[in-house]
Amino acid sequence: MNVFRLTGDLSHLAAIIILLLKIWKTRSCAGISGKSQILFAVVFTSRYLDLLTSFISLYNTSMKVIYIGCAYATLYFVYMKFKATYDGNHDTFRVEFLLVPVGGLSFLVNHDFSPLEILWTFSIYLESVAILPQLFMISKTGEAETITTHYLFFLGLYRALYLFNWIWRFYFEGFFDMIAIVAGLVQTILYCDFFYLYITKVLKGKKLSLPA
């Protein structure tokens, strides 16, 4: 565990909690892509199946359980409790365009052709693009609530911090995982445009709105 890993995990946790609290406090999931949230639930579920096969630490187990629990709580909010506020008309990204290539790739490029390993690889690839329905929704409506942008910022920051964690691990432990690194790079790059808007607009007190 190094400082980048820990702050990355905490940033990820912050993002998830911010989203849940936003929906709970405003009693609304307006502006949130349910499709992205479904993809994140699939990511956590397929990656953390190792909860059943290996124990690493109390920290590791608790975080995995919290991530999975929050992912499904978010889905419950969006598709059941606050369904009336869900903006499905603008959540029109075709997720099969992500699921099919990502599924195919995880069968072709993995470390080991075994069910758990393929599911782990699938979750890594899927996570890298899971935010696209949300970004697509924002580009369609042309704006995002400020609290939603905080969510996106911490969610993007988390994988960027993991990139530093992997540099650290390569340097001090001689350890690297090409699948995670390439997917993590793709994931972080997808947020760059948003990071720019967040820094130049939201942090200066303006609402995030895109030119028509």
């Binding site: 975080m63 991530y67 964690n165 350890f175 995982d177 699948i179």
Partner: peptide
Amino acid sequence: SNEPLRHDEL
């Protein structure tokens, strides 16, 4: 081996 990353990281 990628064993550490697969289970240890989140």
